[in-house]
Design a protein around this nucleic acid. Structure first.
Lengths: 123, 123
DNA sequence: GACAGATATATCGTGACGCGATATATTGTC
DNA sequence: GACAATATATCGCGTCACGATATATCTGTC
């Protein structure tokens, strides 16, 4: 019953975190995850798109198709369609929960490996 | 190819950490993990024993059967046999690797969720 | 205009593995 | 004798991560 720290949960945490920072489309997420983690995390299509779908089904994110306009920042991709995802209010709450869970989890593991827990300041 | 942060890896990290602190037998490990994590981590038999077996097969830990003596600290269990596990030199190395991997992983996740990374001091 | 490669979204099959259920044995207690 | 706790161990099955694959558009180049 207690929540396990599944890869799924970690992936969810990362995606919701990115979207809190601003809306993104799928491919951008996969690229940003890879670059910001220096290749340690990978969001391959087989993982990313099913997850985005599930997150949307849960109402944590919403999506809209957008046509890239020629006068946009990136004129190269004029005409191409992208599916933009944005965080919902529910998703924001879930993110807060996931972050709290991650912190609790981290504290437990750190205690086991004898890591100094660094004082956990108030919110 | 880059290592994923599987539950298996986390379980391994926890067990090796416990054994670095001193030899233990299986059941004690499961109880200690539960109590020290306040129930967040669970080492059920279906997880623990296969894992211990695998760790021993890898030479990371070694084991010996010990008969509980009546003059031991816990006289209630006189006659009962326990399988004591201790960390090997190889296991100690692996533990160091796992700890390093955990720290790296944690730093990546923390960066995503905008956690202040707390300066990573030298060893 | 044909081909390669990057961009972009999406699904499907399966192989691995987490772990609940189960088995066995001993000791203690009611 | 029945039940609970201690203690180790295995097996099977359901789930899930993710590689492989498919589709489509744009750019560059020969």
């Amino acid at each position: 019953m207690p929540p396990r720290d599944s890869q799924r949960d970690q992936a969810e945490l990362v995606i919701l975190s990115l979207l809190e920072d601003g809306s993104r489309y799928g491919y951008a997420i996969s690229k940003e995850v890879a670059s910001r983690s220096d290749g340690m995390l990978r969001m391959t299509p087989g993982v990313l798109y099913p997850l985005l779908k599930a997150l949307e089904a849960d109402g944590l994110i919403s999506s809209t198709w957008e046509e890239v306009k020629a006068d946009d920042a990136d004129p190269d991709d004029a005409g191409r369609k992208r599916k933009w995802y944005r965080l919902s209010a529910k998703g924001r709450k879930r993110l807060a929960q996931r972050v709290a869970a991650h912190r609790a989890w981290r504290a437990v593991i750190d205690a086991f490996i004898g890591e100094r827990p660094e004082k956990e300041g108030a919110s």
